[in-house]
């Protein structure tokens, strides 16, 4: 019986505190991560909601971009919400020309696709693999997934648009479970991190 590995929350900018709380609620020790060397100390990483252009710029400035890409490539579990979904997309639409993503999921994500703040909304979302009824979906200037590759699995759609995706150990949602008291998606991610750690021990 192994203990749950510590999960990092990328703390360059965004709603870090809410993710730390949601992870603790889901039974995982969690800590903020801002520096490349800190990635070695965590079993999985959450990329929070925030402003994706700011996050991308800070990741480049502080030498985090390549270490983060290496983290994803190594198959370590990563979960991105909203701006975090943009960060784990292989391709981005309506981003800035110089905007870097980490990649990780073979998908094209459209930034701010659901509109500006006046169009931000809440809706109940059915997510594949999450039992107990729909989750509380809070969408804030949210992106959607324009298309996914063969290896990516669509977990949820809303209004005909994909809003939750998983590919291997990388998970992404357009919405913000961390802003609600419903942490079933965080619990799913914690399970992914535990499974990855157990697989690593066996290897």
């Amino acid at each position: 019986m192994s203990t749950t590995p510590t999960i990092g929350v990328l703390a360059l900018q965004g709603d870090v505190r809410e993710h730390l709380g949601a992870l603790a609620d889901a039974g995982a020790p969690a800590r903020p991560v801002r520096r490349p060397e800190e990635l070695a100390e965590i079993g999985g990483l959450v990329i929070p909601g925030g402003e994706s252009t700011t996050m991308s710029k800070l990741a480049v400035s502080f030498g985090m971009l390549e270490p983060l890409r290496a983290f994803v490539r190594a198959g370590r579990p990563v979960y991105g919400t909203c701006a975090g979904m943009i960060m784990v997309a292989d391709k981005l639409l309506d981003g800035r020309d110089d905007q870097e993503t980490l990649g990780g999921i073979d998908m094209i994500v459209r930034r701010n696709a659901f509109g500006r703040q006046n169009e931000s909304f809440e809706a109940a979302i059915e997510v594949a693999g999450i039992g107990g009824g729909p989750v509380e979906g809070v969408f804030i200037r949210a992106p959607w997934v324009e298309s996914v590759g063969a290896s990516a699995e669509v977990l949820a759609t809303y209004g005909g648009h994909t809003v939750a995706v998983r590919q291997g150990n990388v998970l992404a949602t357009s919405f913000h479970p961390e802003l609600t008291g419903d942490h079933r998606i965080h619990a799913l991610f914690v399970e992914m991190v535990r499974a990855a750690a157990a697989a690593g021990e066996r290897a």
């Binding site: 703390a11 900018q13 965004g14 402003e51 909203c82 006046n118 809706a123 509380e136 802003l179």
Partner: peptide
């Protein structure tokens, strides 16, 4: 004071308004 999520989409809720500011944190 977590409200329950509406079945039909709802804009301008307190959670969506306050949540927007949460996204600006650290910025």
């Amino acid at each position: 004071s977590t409200p329950t999520t509406p079945q039909t989409p709802e804009t301008g809720t307190a959670r969506v308004k306050r949540g927007m500011a949460e996204q600006l944190k650290g910025g």
